[in-house]
């Protein structure tokens, strides 16, 4: 049997061309946001041993909290944990407006999520991995950060607060 030319209705052909162009434009838009505006998804940062990450004195997460690395620039080491209770350590952070904070978050037990409301910080927290994104806080106010992945019975109460002072 001969291979025949495929019949495509002209309306449908135009629709397919339109669809393809639209999808290419969407891909272009996310590329601009990612590579032009620096709105990126997390990259592999560091691997840790979840069994010791919260206790080893050499691990920054044995003493989680905020460190000022240069004026207006902070590193926040945050531990998300389900054992012995569901919580972020530390639960509260205070920074002045205009600060840029790099969040380094890991878990000593199960998977968690980390989402700071009204910002682009939103990522998985996976035991053995360190998740990092950097966020600049210009508007004073309070920003809750909440756990967004099921981590056991107390998942729904797990949150903390960032206070941005004027």
């Amino acid at each position: 049997m001969n291979t025949r030319q495929m019949h495509i209705d002209p309306y449908e052909r135009n629709w397919m061309i339109f669809s393809a162009v639209m999808l290419v434009l969407f891909a272009a838009a996310v590329s601009v946001a990612a590579f032009g505006m620096g709105i990126e998804v997390p990259a592999p940062e560091q691997r840790v041993d979840p069994r010791t990450v919260a206790t080893d004195p050499n691990s920054p997460w044995s003493n989680p909290g905020l460190r000022e690395v240069s004026p207006g620039k902070y590193d926040a080491y945050i531990l998300a944990r389900a054992v012995p209770q569901w919580e972020f350590l530390p639960k509260e952070l205070t920074i002045p407006a205009g600060s840029s904070v790099s969040f380094y978050v890991t878990s000593p037990d199960v998977q968690h999520g980390f989402k700071i409301q009204n910002t682009n910080a939103n990522f998985m927290v996976i035991p053995g991995q360190v998740s990092k994104l950097t966020i600049r806080f210009d508007e004073p106010g309070t920003y809750d950060f909440i756990c967004t992945e099921y981590c056991g019975s107390g998942h729904g109460i797990m949150y903390g607060t960032i206070t941005v002072t004027p």
């Binding site: 999808l23 998804v41 990259a43 940062e45 991995q129």
Partner: peptide, 24 residues
């Protein structure tokens, strides 16, 4: 897995292009 820490963004981006493709 866009927001997984253990997968490089380049691969996430490639998968995103294929995802736009499967919308077609």
């Amino acid at each position: 897995q866009y927001v997984d820490p253990g997968v490089p963004p380049a691969w996430k981006f490639i998968h995103s292009l294929l995802t736009f493709g499967v919308f077609f």
